[in-house]
Design a protein around this nucleic acid. Structure first.
Lengths: 243, 243
DNA sequence: CGGCATTTTGACAATCGTCAATCAGTGTGG
DNA sequence: CCACACTGATTGACGATTGTCAAAATGCCG
């Protein structure tokens, strides 16, 4: 049975079969959540750790003038803030951008997982650190890359993250984001996001067909955007079996 | 004896006297580091956890075209990446912007601290989470605030962070950053950073005198930039003694 | 005083945002 | 099947913000 949560955590640490069954058990009863629903609202004091098993969610902040800034994506396999309880109050909102299958873990469940397996502990730590690392790369992108390269960079990131949980093959994946959502992520207007897409299409980097994006020139797109997957800290792809 | 590290961690958890002496002992032998020196270089595999006791350091990435993006500040009391060893390789550089007094803790020392006191464990976790939270606020600022408000927001952040470790009184603090460093932080040109400074001065929000900035209208500056200190998750200032 | 880094300014160009209209895709009801 | 409504994508025209280049002013330090 494939499980995106387990599949993702494998990148953080070698898990034993025992670890994997514990993790599977912990997320065994996911709930379905519709699109555009709020999982955790800014200012609230969250009770559960959420794991996105399937679908697409994001963190965002809304500013005084009503504009929105998306500050992170939650893809299948990702979990929200292991230890938010320490901060007391969450300072942003987490909401779905696609219908999701989500497991809610009680704080105690997480503590048990962490206490009983040093490997799980390590894997969850790894996930937290990758979160920070990704934020820092986003800052770099927003600060120093022009719009088209910034978009290119994000499209590369999504590809690698999807591949990490087995949801992208052959350089293509489902584009679950509207251009407005892209612009809220990249900090630009929708019109400009649209123009950047156009440019990437015209330069032969990508092709978009009914919500599926295919990166037709990955090497070129990576070079164009200065993308290196190092900040995602993923395990290298297994080489084809030695014999 | 005042110690910025302890003073900062008090915001994360109530520490006992015993906790505090352990922390003090751990950072008892700091080294002096000059300006513009690298503490941890991108791609390296760091051996120590660094604690900045005094001075000013930052994390940054350098892009292909030579430009630099600063992705975080390390003020007195801040520590660098508790558990970097889990990621194997650090994906950015940490360097000083001012002469610093820095304690280098062996991984084992940190583990001992964490193992022996649940309060210290909690306080260090808190520091990590505040790091992420700050990154997310920076993303929001870069994405959705125009240059002048972005600068205003950063100046507010610095004030609150300095106050949190007792290094700012009466809304003024040492401005240890050149305008070039500000522009590398905010993702804009130095010329534009300069213009934003000018605007804040002309609008009576700030006054700068030989490397000391005074925020002359804090309430106004906070409102102008949409700043709320909530994302820093600091403990509220103690009220003046009840009697 | 003389060097040097930093700040400041102006002129101009490039990038990006806003507004408004059109186009395309999808689902609904008749 | 088609008309209709609705959302999202696309485009053009124009204005605002920001970057680049170059020069001058300021401040600091030996």
């Amino acid at each position: 049975m494939r499980n995106t949560f387990v599949e993702r955590l494998r990148h953080g640490c070698d898990l034993t079969d025992d670890d994997e069954s514990r993790l599977l058990e912990a997320v065994a009863e996911p709930v379905s959540v519709g699109v555009q629903e709020v999982l955790i609202r800014e200012g609230a004091d969250p009770q559960f750790v959420h794991v996105v098993l399937d679908g697409f969610a994001c963190r965002y902040k809304r500013l005084e003038d009503g504009t929105r800034q998306i500050i992170g994506y939650l893809l299948p396999g990702d979990m929200c803030d292991l230890h938010v309880s320490i901060l007391g109050e969450i300072d942003h909102t987490i909401g779905t951008l696609q219908p999701c299958s989500i497991a809610r873990l009680a704080a105690q469940t997480v503590e048990d997982l962490v206490d009983r397996s040093p490997r799980i502990r390590r894997a969850l730590w790894w996930a937290t650190l990758v979160d920070v690392s990704t934020c820092r790369e986003w800052i770099t992108s927003m600060g120093r890359r022009p719009a088209d390269r910034q978009l290119a960079h994000l499209l590369c990131e999504l590809l690698f993250r999807y591949q990490a949980v087995g949801l992208a093959t052959d350089n293509s994946y489902n584009l679950f984001l509207t251009q407005t959502e892209f612009s809220d992520t990249l900090g630009m207007s929708t019109v400009h996001a649209n123009r950047s897409f156009k440019l990437l299409r015209e330069d032969g980097y990508i092709r978009v067909n009914s919500k599926v994006i295919t990166i037709t020139n990955l090497e070129g797109l990576m070079k164009f955007s200065g993308f290196s997957p190092n900040y995602l800290h993923l395990r290298k792809q297994e080489k084809s079996k030695p014999n």
